[in-house]
């Protein structure tokens, strides 16, 4: 058993991140930039390296015309990374597509979420990021957050 992570971002302008940036500013926070990526984690029964090569070519997850991807999170020092995921989402629909239609049979389970990078220039940036997340980026009634 091994785990493979996949971070999928946009190479075209991310309008959701732009709107989020403006909303955070309107809420009264000083913020430099907002970035967003889709996050997937696959538990697999097989060769992680081979799987990593295959999963980056699955256009259900990565559309080469607009997306870029990596298997490692390259962190910026001045950003706080907040992962938002749905508490009861077992990704059953997506996993069915990957395993049955695209024949990625080695997947045993998967997780997904939205990874936000909040660029905050303050000593207590993690505290501010958590506050922004609780007010805007996640609804605690069905989602959870993790500072990555």
């Amino acid at each position: 058993m091994s785990a493979v992570e996949l971070f999928v971002g946009l190479k075209i302008p991310d309008t959701t991140a732009i709107t989020t940036f403006h909303t955070i500013e309107k809420m009264g926070y000083k913020i430099g930039k907002v970035k967003r990526e889709m996050y997937y984690k696959f538990e697999i029964d097989g060769d992680a390296e081979k799987f990593s090569k295959k999963i980056g070519k699955v256009d259900v997850l990565v559309n080469a015309n607009k997306n870029k991807f990596s298997h490692v999170l390259e962190k910026d020092a001045d950003a706080v990374y907040v992962l938002v995921s749905d508490t009861d989402d077992k990704c059953e629909g997506l996993m069915h597509v990957l395993k049955e239609r695209l024949e990625l049979k080695e997947i045993t389970s998967m997780e997904k979420g939205v990874l936000w990078a909040l660029y905050i220039d303050a000593a207590d940036k993690e505290k501010i990021a958590k506050e922004i997340a609780s007010k805007l980026l996640h609804n605690e009634n069905y989602q959870e957050i993790k500072i990555v």
């Binding site: 309008t15 959701t16 709107t19 909303t23 809420m27 805007l136 980026l137 609804n139």
Partner: peptide
């Protein structure tokens, strides 16, 4: 509203 960005309704709510 706002293309359901982040999640449905949240940006308009602010």
């Amino acid at each position: 509203s706002y293309e359901d960005r982040i999640r449905a309704g949240v940006i308009a709510a602010k």
